[in-house]
Amino acid sequence: MMNQLIFIIENRYTRLVLVGLMFLSLQTTLFNEMRPFGVCLQVMLLLAASSGLATGSQTGAIAGFIVGLLYDMVLATPLGLCAAVFAIVGYLAGFAHSFVHESTWWSRMLTASIVSAVGMILLPIGFTITGTENVLTLNVLTVALVVALFNAVFSWPVEFVCRWALREPSAAR
């Protein structure tokens, strides 16, 4: 019983959930108020993208799913929609960056930026599929652009946090 508890506590996804909760609280308070160009910055999407960049496509997809599910809990949109989109974003981030021969800081920024933009376009498509109307407008492009820029700037520190949270328990010791 105790061993199982220690295993759960040591699990990297448990750490990710805790980090995700902190990011979610920032998302619903600070970044909900700060809206440059009228766009709500998506720090949860950044967390999903950075997870993929830090650990690769498979872990990125699972981490993105967890982060998206946390985000779904506070949104009025269908549960699981953000989880699916963020899982794709996490997967794409890891997959796209696996083609980079020698990874540099700017290649990571660029990848985070592009996958964030893709995520912000996929979200309204998902909303439309699940029945929400008037969401797929040209405003989506503005939102995607602003979010992509913000996520590019902050991708490095968030990736550092993701690398720490998603390291294997053996590496942690």
Partner: peptide, 22 residues
């Protein structure tokens, strides 16, 4: 195989959750 299985599981879970919520 593991990666495909993971992606399949995540997709299925998402679809189930969305359906349940809707």
């Amino acid at each position: 195989f593991t990666r495909r299985r993971a992606i399949l599981l995540l997709s299925l879970t998402s679809v189930i959750l969305i359906t349940m919520d809707l």
